[in-house]
């Protein structure tokens, strides 16, 4: 079994190696070519994804204009909570901006796995809590920062994103127009 995969999935979780391998053997790992939509507006999703490799962009249409609301990359979980959890039609689209390899899950499989591996329930609870914590922190930073500060934060916290994603999508994610982003970049380059 690939040790990198175990490391990426479980980190330093206190699970015996045999149990990790047994869990991995049951996982549904799929590859999606760049451009694939794994979720569309209006769908009631029954799937969640844990990204092993690649990048997924979450966006919605606001008066016909795409607004990017998140980028998911390696070791992040794409869980459209409104849809997956509350079984409401999704407001969002999720599209692979690169070829993506991901673990694909659904609620019934999830329950089965917890029955087989009770420790997994603790692990996923902690994962959800960490994800929530991070999102809260990012939002607190977002709401209190100027667009330029937001760009600098992104540079510090997720430098790879700036290489991987087109500028106009980054601009949308920062809540500004592509022209404003160019101005910010020019200003920072001169500093």
């Amino acid at each position: 079994m690939n040790s990198d995969l175990l490391q990426q999935l479980f980190g330093d979780a206190p699970l015996p190696r045999e149990e990790m391998e047994a869990i991995v053997a049951l996982l549904d790992i799929q590859t999606f070519p760049k451009g694939t939509h794994i979720l569309r507006e209006g769908e009631i999703s029954s799937k969640c994804f844990f990204i092993l490799k690649g990048c997924v962009r979450q966006y919605l249409l606001d008066d016909g204009i795409e607004k990017t609301t998140f980028f998911y990359t390696e070791s992040q979980a794409v869980v459209p909570f409104d849809s997956y959890l509350q079984q409401k039609p999704s407001r969002h689209y999720c599209v692979c901006v690169e070829d993506v390899t991901a673990v694909v899950g659904n609620p019934s499989e999830e329950k089965e796995m917890y029955q087989k591996f009770p420790k997994l329930a603790s692990l996923t609870r902690m994962m959800v809590e960490q994800g929530f914590g991070k999102t809260q922190e990012e939002f607190a930073t977002f709401i209190t920062s100027s667009p330029e500060e937001r760009y600098l934060n992104l540079q510090t916290n997720r430098p790879d994103l700036l290489q991987r994603v087109p500028q106009h999508q980054i601009a949308s994610y920062l809540g500004i127009t592509p022209e404003s982003l160019s101005r910010i970049r020019r200003r920072l380059a001169k500093k």
Partner: peptide, 22 residues
């Protein structure tokens, strides 16, 4: 159940975050 609560709170929070962008 605790995880469901965090997930529900997360879902509400995501909806709020989205409104700030849209």
């Amino acid at each position: 159940i605790a995880r469901k609560i965090v997930e529900n709170t997360f879902a509400e929070f995501q909806a709020t975050v989205t409104t700030y962008l849209t």
